[in-house]
Structure formats: C-alpha cells, structure tokens
Design a protein around this nucleic acid. Structure first.
Lengths: 256, 256
DNA sequence: TTCCGGAGTTGATTTGGATCAATTCTGGAC
DNA sequence: GTCCAGAATTGATCCAAATCAACTCCGGAA
C-alpha cells in the first residue's frame, strides 16, 4: 500500500510508530483488529506533532475530510451560533474521536481547538471508508463509536438541575480517565470554568458555587482545575441520573 | 438469499412490497442503491403492521437487535431516569430511524413508543451489518445517518432560551415534513404538549404561553396540535440559532 | 344527548440559576 | 523578585421559566 500523498507527516519515524505502538491501540478505532488489519489502518493515518493550546484542528464550515483521534492532551469542540454566542459541544481526551458530526454534510459542523498541548491522528475519511469496507471489524467498531457518541449526546440534551449536571459530568469524566488508565479519583480538568459552564449550560459563577458546595459537603476537593473525588457514592447519588459518558450501565429506576 | 428465520413477518405480500415500493425508498436507508442492492436489504427487513398509539417498539435495557425505520405515523423515544422522571429524547416521523443508540452497548438505551397508529420496518442489526459490508453505498449512508443524528443531538444539547428552542423546533419539524413531501407550513404535531415540553426541557405551561405569544405576533396559527406557520422568516429570526434538524446549513455568525 | 377525564390554557407566585459587581487568586512575562 | 491580565471566587440582585392553582376545552363512552 503506497504511502503517497501524505502532507502533514512529521517524520518517517513518527509515522512508523503509528497505530501499532500507539497508546490508543485498544481504545481507538483499531479495537480488536489483527496485525495486518492494523497495518491497513496505520497506512492511512497522519500522526500530527504537538498542537499548541489554542490551535484549531478544524473549523465549522470547513470541508470535512478527516476524523481526529486524540492521542494525548485534550480538545474542545464548539459552535458559534448566529447571535455570536459560543456553545461548547464536548471535550475529547486521549483515545476519543472528534469530527464525526461532519460526515453527513461533508462540512465540519463545529470547531475543534486544543485545550492544551495535544497530539492527534488525522484519519482521512475517504480512505477510512475504504479500509472500513475491507475490514469488517472496523466497520462494527466505527458504528459502535458513533452510537456511543449519540447516546452521550442525547443524555447531555436531557433536563437536569445544575447540581445533577456537574456531578454527572465529574463522574463521566472520571470513568473516561479510568478508561485511559488514569486514577479515577484524581481529575485534572483540561478546560477553564467558562468552557465547562458552557458545556453544561450553566454560568461560570454557578460552577464555582457548586464546586464550593460539593467541597463543603465533602464530596470533592477542588483546587483550581485539580478535582479530587472524595465520595463517589454521594456524587453518584446527586449525578446518577445524568451520566453523559455514553456507556454507563443504566441504573434501574426506583419504582416506588 | 434465503428468507429463513423471519418471525414477525405479517404476510408474504407485505414482505414483498417492502423496500422497493416503500414510500421511504429514497429517504430511508437504501438511498442511492441499485435494484439488486435494494433486493438484499429488502430480504432482511420485517415490515410490521399497524402499531397502535401507546404500543412500544422496544424498551430501555432490552437486548438490542434491530433498528426501526418509521414508514408512517410517529414514534417518541424517551428514558426514565433513576429518579423516575421521563426525558423525551426525540420524535421520529416517516422516513426516520430509531434505535441507533443501542448499537454500542448491545442494549436499547431508550424506550420507543408509537404516538399514533404507526408502521415500521424492523431491520435486524446483525444482518444489516452483513448487508452493509456487501453494499458500500449502504455503509456510507449508514454513517451519514448516524452523523446527522449526532449533529442534531449535539445541537439539541446547547443552551438557548425557551423561545429559541420552540421556534427552532417548529422550523426543524417543518423541514422534516417538507422532506416527506408534506406542506412545510402546515404542521400536525403528533405529540401532546407534555412530550414536546419534556423534549425541549420546558414546562407544558411554557409551551402553551409561547404558542399564544407566537400566535399574537402573527408567527403561527395554533389550534390544539395543528400549527400553521404564517411567518417563517420571523420564526427563523427567533429560532435560527437552534435548529436541531441535523442538516440545516449553518448561517454565518454575525460578526459585528 | 350528557358526562367525564385528560389535554390545554391562563393567571399568580416562587425559585434556580443568571447577571451584575467587586474582590482575590495566580501563573507567567519581564 | 514585581506586575499584570485572565481565571476564579464570592456576594447582591434580578429574571426567565417552573411551579402551583384554577379553569376551559374538547373527544370519546355510554
């Protein structure tokens, strides 16, 4: 398979260490693929060197041509509505994919910006579609990923109190960190309060006050962007009805 | 291709008139497929006779085994959270698909209930995956559909005023009706106020008051569930920043 | 036809969270 | 180190929408 038409590749060495040795290998797209299938996927991705905080991966309205798998760091996706207001759609940490919403229209539906120094794999979609077709396991994985995003997004759209939303968000972030092998009780938030507030449809002041209250109640310990979860059960009691992580098992509703 | 293992088929005749003559043929999954590809898809779907209002297509927690394409009528999807509160995730009219969020976990992530007499195609997912693999056009269409749902859901999760949400919803419903060939200015809402309110994270009273105001302002004419759009431009001015239809073209933000 | 119960509307009141308004941190830049 | 601008916190006030409370309007059932 020719390695032609690679524009942004940083170096041969970096390309070579792509998927096979990537830390995302069992969490990103290639989940459950054999060595040769992995090879196929590897041959199309562009590993992109450190993207600095504030740099954009893509912008709303751009022609959609690639998905972006985050290898390290964190990315925020957002839109600017026709009143000029920013809406934060989500955050993408290592092992997660951004850009899926651009597929259907052929244009990116949101902006994606690095929240910190970040490395990503750009996966050209046209070529991905070919590889998907050749590798059935990849097709299934792709559908699973999109389905999970859909679940998470639908959950995020539901009606809950500020308290429930923040508690739920912390729990979901904790699970996502755990999936990455990070300690689930020690969250280092990659985003400022403003972005977190926008994502949860709250004011930054409300976030601040809720953190203060959660801390008073011994649920968490918060210092700037470092959040330590002290009482996951209590947090679950508050935010259990709102877990936008896309695969929290449904707790059975209390019928009483 | 054997027609074996069909359990819920209503009659041979009904099966035979499946996809090829179905009114959804260019709007549902088989978009852009040739006759033989259509044949493949047709061979796996189960056309299900009239489902009465209030009957469920599937329930949260059930094993996921099929997608449901609505042929006529309307379906509501919803969850019950662990506090016993209902959250309406969305409405599915003719030509739209429900159940996509169940793919990743192998369990349905929500309940789906008919809002009126409804007919659907049940598409067994395991078999759909095979057909998708054999028909590249179907693979692309499947990804497009999921991407569109994702866009719509993300948009729905954003922060907007009650006014913007209702106006945006009406516009999006109008577009969806238009896509079905129905007059885009004459909306017959399939859902009661309560469901619409839940979906838009509002109280039924707020919906009522907004409809009254929109009517006073000459934007719409509302009588029970019959809504006539009188001034689409004015409605667009109110709800243009919130169009959860998944493929409204982005209006460029006013930078001033 | 009358009756009835759920759906919808309308009005009064309350409230969760936004907004407005100061401070207080704090991590760089120099 | 000092300075500074953005980030975060904290307090006071306001307001959009929820809640509470009647009341009206149907669309069937009998």
């Amino acid at each position: 398979m020719p390695a032609a038409r690679d524009s942004n590749v940083v170096s041969i060495a970096q390309l070579r260490q792509s998927c096979r040795s990537c830390s995302l290998r069992d969490l990103c797209l290639p989940l459950g693929l054999g060595a040769d299938d992995m090879q196929k996927l590897e041959s199309i991705v562009h590993s992109r060197g450190p993207i600095r905080s504030g740099e954009h991966l893509f912008r709303e309205g751009d022609a959609f041509h690639a998905l972006y798998a985050v290898k390290s760091g964190a990315v925020k996706t957002y839109t600017i509505d026709n009143q000029g207001r920013e809406h934060v759609l989500g955050f993408h940490i290592a092992g997660e994919v951004a850009g899926l919403d651009g597929i259907h229209s052929g244009r990116n539906r949101c902006n994606a910006v690095a929240l910190q120094a970040t490395t990503v794999c750009a996966v050209p979609f046209a070529r991905l579609e070919q590889v998907i077709h050749e590798v059935p396991g990849l097709q299934a994985q792709m559908l699973r990923i999109m389905s999970r995003e859909l679940s998470a997004s639908a959950q995020l759209a539901t009606d809950h109190s500020a308290e429930e939303r923040l508690a739920g968000f912390l729990l979901s972030l904790s699970k996502r960190y755990a999936r990455r092998g990070l300690p689930p009780d020690l969250l280092s938030l990659p985003m400022p309060r403003r972005d977190l507030a926008s994502h949860l449809r709250l004011a930054t002041e409300t976030i601040s006050r809720l953190f203060a209250r959660f801390q008073e109640d011994g649920l968490v310990s918060v210092r700037r962007r470092e959040v330590q979860i002290l009482d996951a059960e209590a947090l679950e009691a508050l935010g259990g009805s709102f877990l936008p992580d896309g695969d929290g098992q449904r707790r059975s509703p209390q019928l009483r």
